[in-house]
Design a protein around this nucleic acid. Structure first.
Lengths: 203, 203
DNA sequence: GACTATGTGTCATAGACTGACAGAATGTCA
DNA sequence: TGACATTCTGTCAGTCTATGACACATAGTC
């Protein structure tokens, strides 16, 4: 018994309206100084309804919805790309190559919506935590890719640790990148710099 | 003009009472189901007073007080130990050796108070974030130690990334360790396993 | 003993979030 | 089209974390 389509459209619409209003307010007034009631008022709904669309105030910035596809897509693409690198490459070199290809794309989508979210998030320490957590959710996937290259099981501590280490490395790169302006061209440069040090640091 | 000592003793005492009461309640009822008012009542103070001793409810579990000394001490000890490892060792090998020496000590103190805190923290996802954040606060120190070994500047992206990567690796090791029982003897084993994979993964 | 600094309780309030209920809109089906 | 169920929404009430303001008591100083 499939439910109608007008309802669905309205739901998507309302969600989008709230999302835009919230982001808009947070960009100008800051996250803390934007109350849920503000957002609700600006969206033309009640604050109770806001919570029917988003689990929490912070959830507006970590929008797992159209992201859901993205989320897994990015992960999948990453893993696949990693698997397709020649086995002759070291793990670190393969990852560097993949990052060069894929990381830039992540911020080139969405009409810069993700970038706007990122800026608000990075401005608020408490949100940085959540962002990093979301980032690390890809850990198991990445670990699986590493396990394949290293001929071990994904559940082993080794690949898991390796993945976590690289993820945190990427995270720091992103923070540094955003702190230094966030120019898309700068990203590959920072990646190379960081990975060069890691290569020597582990030898 | 030095203020009295009875006051100081009372303050320390009250803090300790709240700390113990809070941890006790959280262990039995769980973090979320323990309200500040519960803690206050069990401690014989008002909830307003609770917030005069701790910035937030979570702050009880990330006690920067007697930790303050510990906090820096551990960091210092770690950095010093790292500097004292022979220059012939690789960075990864030096760190492994230091962890073997120092990491166990961290949970052998405090009459297991830190361990009790850790268990409550790990049971609550939202608290894991904070814990990891606190853990990563040592980042700059560790980066400095690495910079010294690698003959670069601590502010460089390289050492910073390297430190972050290793820290996250350690964090994952700790999570795995705690999830698998938390026996003190197991820790070195896990460290070795993880570092072995990292060494091959980076080659 | 007078004076000051500090700690505490009480009261009031803001803000995030949740449950319960009623009414309105949307969907299905005869 | 009209009866019926489903879903969405607003309103209201309430919990919990956290903060500011005020008054009172206690500890410290001279």
């Amino acid at each position: 018994m499939p439910m109608g389509r007008l309802r669905d459209r309205q739901r998507v619409e309302t969600r989008a309206v709230i999302l835009e209003a919230a982001l808009d307010l947070m960009e100008t007034k800051g996250y803390e100084h934007t109350t849920v009631e503000d957002i609700a008022a600006a969206s033309g709904v009640s604050s109770r309804t806001f919570f029917r669309y988003f689990e929490s105030k912070a959830d507006v910035l970590f929008d797992k919805h159209d992201s859901d596809a993205d989320h897994d897509d990015k992960s999948q693409a990453m893993t696949a790309a990693l698997a397709n690198r020649p086995a002759s490459e070291s793990t670190i070199e393969a990852l560097r190559a993949v990052l060069h290809d894929k990381l830039g794309e992540l911020f080139d989508h969405d009409d810069g919506f993700k970038l706007r979210q990122l800026r608000v998030v990075l401005a608020e320490p408490s949100l940085r935590l959540l962002a990093r957590e979301g980032f690390h959710e890809h850990g198991p996937q990445l670990a699986a890719a590493f396990a394949q290259r290293l001929h071990t099981t994904p559940d082993d501590l080794g690949p898991r640790v390796l993945a976590a280490a690289f993820q945190e490395a990427i995270w720091v790169i992103l923070e540094r990148w955003s702190a230094s302006g966030g120019e898309l061209d700068r990203l590959p440069v920072l990646i190379d710099e960081a990975f060069a040090t890691m290569a020597t640091g582990f030898r």
